[in-house]
Nucleic acid binder design. Structure first.
Lengths: 153, 153
DNA sequence: CCGATATAGTTTCAGCTGAAACGACTTTTC
DNA sequence: GAAAAGTCGTTTCAGCTGAAACTATATCGG
């Protein structure tokens, strides 16, 4: 009989840790800025390169197009993001932060980095690099095991 | 303005990798054994120590009691798990694998370890230890940042 | 003992997610 | 240049999750 202890099982550990981290971040963003995680992710990517389509946002954030669509609508309604017609392709629009959106981003981003720093506090630079590289390799392997599968949170 | 690139942001990377891994595993278990992740987790813990209550299962798997309740019902209905009255406390029952459940476990556990091995293939023993230790530290830090929050998948 | 409070587990309900169907527009093909 | 096929984005629907309400039992304080 196989020797399998759940809390030594990596997929389980990964899921637990990721959920804790996500929950901590989600709570903070929601309380401080009224943002959900998908919304915050869109803002982060739009801030980097304004004039982006939703489909590109989906690729960048690895979120489903439905999730992107809903988050984008919420942000537009809140006046944080504006849509301009895409001349090249009228099926889509181009998204950019409004002035208000930019202002919010300038508040959220430092807070995000601060939260991240708190969670990484006990890792030194080498460890962080190693962690990041390992995550990349694990993700690649997972993609091989089952090519599909997305999932946001 | 803060320098924040989403794909270097640890909480995001963690979430993406964890979701990929979970999706890969979930697909495999569902296809091979008709098990969802919460069900599989219960089986893994019950196999280790039969005669366990649902509340203890919740602690062990870090899943919500609702999730545990539903997974337990499904397993009982499928005849993989049996409930015996808990003499000491009649609010709860004690769960154990049936013969069928044990048989299934003996198939699932090796498969689980095999899947894990595939994902960890490119990490050597030292790296795995380091990864595990880092996950522990990150989880602890996340718990400090926001004590609550659970979440299964 | 017995009422007050707490805990195990279930049910209900609201929220989030993503597959699938759909509408609008674009590209390809003949 | 129009029908066929593909893509962007929205809507719909079904599934999963967890907070809160609820039932049954247990424990605590007087």
């Amino acid at each position: 009989m196989a020797d399998l202890k759940l809390d030594q099982f990596l997929p389980y550990r990964l899921s637990v840790v990721s959920n804790r981290v996500s929950a901590a971040i989600a709570t903070a963003y929601d309380r401080l800025f009224g943002l959900r995680i998908p919304e915050w992710r869109l803002i982060a990517v739009i801030a980097e390169g304004p004039g982006i389509t939703q489909q590109a946002l989906g690729v960048a954030t690895r979120m489903d197009k439905v999730t992107v669509s809903r988050a984008a609508q919420a942000l537009v309604e809140r006046g944080l993001v504006a849509r301009t017609p895409n001349e090249g392709d009228r099926r889509s629009h181009l998204l950019a932060l409004t002035a208000t959106g930019r202002l919010l981003y300038d508040q959220v981003a430092p807070k995000a980095l601060e939260l991240e720093a708190k969670m990484l506090e006990q890792l030194d630079a080498d460890e962080r690099r190693a962690l990041s590289a390992m995550l990349d390799r694990i993700e690649a392997a997972a993609n091989e095991v089952a090519p599909e599968g997305v999932g946001a949170d």
